[in-house]
């Protein structure tokens, strides 16, 4: 992302303008159930008065998911071949001839057809999910996808938005970017921020056994990490800031219970398109729990005493 830029637009803009929507490697019907009904597919927009009828929906997914079933075009791509397909689309877009019959399991004529659909759209929106960022190629896939969007912008207006899982993944990326210049995997051990996914990213650090203590906050490492990374977590002291019993807290040495942001305390979160939205406090937290920010503040105070 640092290499290519980030051509985004708000979800509302996509709702009002988009006549081509691509879901790449995500399944919003199950993972973001209201995404299609609230934003870019079904609602009537200012320039898309007939709603779904005015839009073309393309889904790229190796499986026939429920989202793929309602798509106009479903590209059933082979697993781990996202980079190849993006490159093929870019090649077709830039007027090169694809000599192979199939790329990533998609017949070449379908690739040309998709490129034509993209070029003739008035406003295209590409939404990508974890299926592309977490398979072979990782963040390089996104670099290539961003280049595809840049190439498409020579013909028409095209934007891309990541489908964020947790409600404030984008918030961390935004905050980290404006403080350190990098969006995640930031290593301060040299006194200044260093970013190099593969070297400074969590899974790789844990697999190599480089870290010797861990603080886990507002995520479930124990449920989502590969086995080898979890084995290392089991060996080192683990502090969990976590409201519920999870697979991660089973490995913890210390559990600090926080209030649930957005339900028991207020705060700000960034939507997947980068719009900050204020969360509401709707009920009082149970006695004896603190908001996340207060726990971290108290930790900072104590750490300063010890340093």
């Amino acid at each position: 992302m640092q290499d290519s830029g980030y051509p985004v637009a708000t979800l509302a803009e996509a709702t009002h303008r988009a006549d081509l929507v691509i879901y790449w490697a995500c399944n919003p019907i199950h993972a973001h159930p209201r995404h299609m009904t609230r934003y870019p597919v079904f609602p009537r927009g200012f320039f898309r008065e007939r709603g779904r009828k005015d839009r073309t929906l393309i889904v790229v997914d190796p499986r026939k998911t429920d989202t793929a079933k309602i798509a106009d075009i479903h590209l059933q791509i082979e697993q781990h071949k996202d980079y190849e397909l993006i490159s093929a689309l870019r090649a077709a877009l830039n007027g090169l001839t694809i000599e192979a019959d199939k790329v990533a399991g998609i017949p070449t004529e379908v690739i040309y057809q998709v490129v034509d659909t993209c070029k003739s759209a008035q406003y295209g929106a590409l939404f990508f999910g974890m299926g592309i960022t977490m398979t072979r190629g990782k963040h390089r896939n996104i670099d290539n996808a961003i280049r595809l969007v840049i190439d498409l912008n020579r013909y028409t207006k095209f934007i891309l938005t990541p489908m964020r899982g947790h409600y404030n993944v984008n918030g961390f990326n935004q905050v980290a970017s404006w403080i350190t210049g990098y969006s995640y995997a930031i290593d301060f051990s040299r006194g200044y921020p260093v970013y190099n996914p593969g070297e400074t990213s969590t899974i790789n650090l844990l697999k190599r056994g480089e870290v010797d203590a861990m603080l886990n906050i507002a995520a479930d490492a124990g449920a989502h990490f590969p086995q080898k990374a979890i084995e290392h977590i089991a060996k080192i002291p683990l502090i969990c800031i976590e409201p519920h019993k999870t697979p991660t807290t089973e490995l913890a040495n210390i559990i600090l219970p926080p209030a649930l942001a957005g339900i028991e305390c207020d705060g700000i979160a960034y939507r997947m398109d980068g719009v900050p939205i204020e969360l509401k406090k709707i009920i009082e937290p149970p006695e004896g729990v603190l908001p996340d920010r207060e726990i971290i503040e108290r930790l900072i105070k104590k750490v300063k005493e010890y340093l």
């Binding site: 918030g171 990326n173 995640y184 051990s189 969590t202 906050i217 920010r293 930790l299 900072i300």
Partner: peptide
């Protein structure tokens, strides 16, 4: 590690904590 189901102020403070400790800070995007 984590931060993704937390609100922005906590994340801001978290980066301050990481800088103090000389730690690695990372979120679920990784």
């Amino acid at each position: 590690y984590g931060w993704s189901s937390s609100e922005t102020h906590a994340q801001f403070k978290g980066i301050e904590l990481a800088e103090l400790l000389g730690a690695v800070i990372d979120n679920t995007a990784t």
